[in-house]
Every structure is written in structure tokens, then in C-alpha cells.
Design a protein around this nucleic acid. Structure first.
Lengths: 152, 152
DNA sequence: ATACGTGCAAAGCGTTTGCATTTCT
DNA sequence: AGAAATGCAAACGCTTTGCACGTAT
């Protein structure tokens, strides 16, 4: 685990909390770290389960609320996903996603060329662009295998 | 309303149903048409509400089930969205989205250059790509105005 | 007669909210 | 003391499921 990277991000959070005058409670920090330490794009509930043994007594609502606070601060973001559950993403750098339309699995991909896209103008929609993501949508290997054995 | 376009899509659905041996019930057809006739990316419930006056007695579950069937047939798709509700998209042609991270609004954008991206290889993930979408994420004008009046 | 879609109601999850309590300043 | 976050439980909203009924082959 690259702890140095996590520490840098936590320090960034500390700084932003100070600037925005948002108290950085123990729970807030731990929820943030738990998201950082997962490489994937978990739901609030998955993080709640992850944290239960480390923080007995932690309330599910606290996880939900803190993820929302962190999102509004801009230190994490909601991942765009085809499912009916909110997923969170701790990466701030430009990156993109492989999305399985069958099981919803989501994997980060990094690609220099994609990062430097010439974006279309959005003036006609009066839309302020913060960042962008490219989503490659299709079927992951696991789901392909499953459908193969269903119809061989 | 461009009815010709809708008719062509419905004919495509008819053909695919015949090929796949999937019965095209009245409800199925009407749910599909209702999605086509909206320019946006509605939830199953929004479509259910839209259809209630045209089809009294229609069950909510029927709408949900048919949207799922249509998705599996590949004539519509789930839209990737940062919210906790499933949204559907009737467009099959390559296109992209403006997504408001504040209210979840989603607008189609068409851009030739984006359609011809050189995609990164996904062999290392053993992932089969069906299509791709570029999402420009940010804040729509309405939400910008709201936050302006909150903190002027 | 069989298979399948539909309507209806209940159950199942994920998420939000209200409120008493605790924590921090 | 006052403001704000937490824990807990209830409420809420979206989605799925089980079952009886209807429909089409």
C-alpha cells in the first residue's frame, strides 16, 4: 500500500477543512481514508462495512453524510455509474473508466491521449465544466464467461 | 416531433423481437416509444407517470421489467449517471453527455471529434468494449444561479 | 395446454431525515 | 453555553419479487 500517497491526500483534506472552516472529525477522516485505500469505486454501504470493525458504533448515516460533505468539498466525487447505487471515486487526477454494463464493475484506466481531449464548446448550454471522464462500456471477462456457459 | 425517426426505431425493435423470438407486447412497444419521445434520460418512474394517462391500469413493475428487457436486447441502454436512480437512454448513435454534478441534469452533446477517439487498448483487462461515452461533468446554469444567490 | 407477460401487493435495499446525545470550541 | 457532528431509528423512494390472472400460441 502506498501510504505516502494516502498521507498527502489526507494533508490536502486537512488544509481544505481549515480553509473552509469545516471540522475534520475522526469519522470524517476515517471515511476518507477508507475510500482512498480501496482502489475501486465503492458504495457508501461498502465503506460502512469496511469500517465497522475499525470503528464499532459507527453509524451508517455518518458514512453517508460524510461522503456527501467530502463530495461538496471537492476532495472526492461521485462516480457516474449505470446502476441504482451511488459510487464514490477518490481520484482527482484525470482518469477514465471501464464499465461493465452487465455487472456494473468499474475499473480505472489511465491514458495520456484521452486526458488531452479537445472538448467541445459548452457555451450554448451555459454549462461550467469541472472535469471529464471517458467511459468505455461493455462486458467484463467474468460476465462474458458467465454468458458463455449459459449458452455454449 | 420527428415521427419518422420514431417509426424507424420501432420497426427496428419489431425486427429484433422477431429475430430474438421475444414477444412485442403492447406495453413493451409503448414503453419504448415513451422513452424515444422524451429527449432526455428519464427514470423508469418518470416513464410510468408519463404513460399512466395513456394506459390506465399499467403497472409500475411492467415499466421496470420492460426497460430491463429492452436494455438486454440492446435497443436502449442504461445511462451512466452519478445519482442513485437508473436512467435510460434511447440513443444508439455515438453521443456524449453533459452531467450536472449538483442536480444530476444530463444533456446530450454531439461532437464529431469525440466520436472518433482513439481508444486505449483494453486487452490487459480482458474487457469487451461495446461503445463509449465522454462525460463533461460540472455545473449547469440553473445550479450556478442557485449557488450565486446563496452566496452573493 | 403451456408458456409467458401483466397487474397488484409486499418485500428488499439504498438513502435521507428527525431527534436526542455527544463533542468540540 | 453554543454550534455542529454523531448515533439511532424511522421514514422514504426506487427497484425487485411472488403470485394469481389473463393472453397468445
Amino acid at each position: 500500500m502506498d501510504t505516502g500517497w494516502v498521507r498527502a491526500r489526507v494533508q490536502d483534506l486537512e488544509r481544505r477543512c481549515r480553509e473552509a472552516d469545516v471540522p475534520l472529525t475522526h469519522q470524517r477522516r476515517v471515511v476518507f481514508e477508507a475510500l482512498l485505500e480501496r482502489g475501486d469505486h465503492p458504495t457508501a454501504d461498502q465503506l460502512f462495512v469496511d469500517l465497522q470493525e475499525a470503528l464499532p458504533g459507527l453509524a451508517r448515516a455518518t458514512v453517508y453524510r460524510n461522503l456527501e460533505v467530502l463530495t461538496e468539498m471537492g476532495v472526492i466525487s461521485r462516480a457516474c455509474h449505470p446502476g441504482a447505487v451511488v459510487r464514490y471515486d477518490a481520484r482527482l487526477e484525470p482518469h477514465h473508466h471501464l464499465v461493465c454494463l452487465s455487472c456494473g464493475a468499474m475499473v480505472d484506466i489511465v491514458d495520456e491521449r484521452l486526458d488531452h481531449l479537445e472538448l467541445p464548446s459548452t457555451v450554448e448550454h451555459d454549462f461550467e465544466v469541472r472535469d471529464f471522464r471517458v467511459q468505455l462500456r461493455g462486458t467484463c471477462s467474468r460476465c462474458r464467461e458467465r454468458s458463455d456457459e449459459a449458452a455454449p
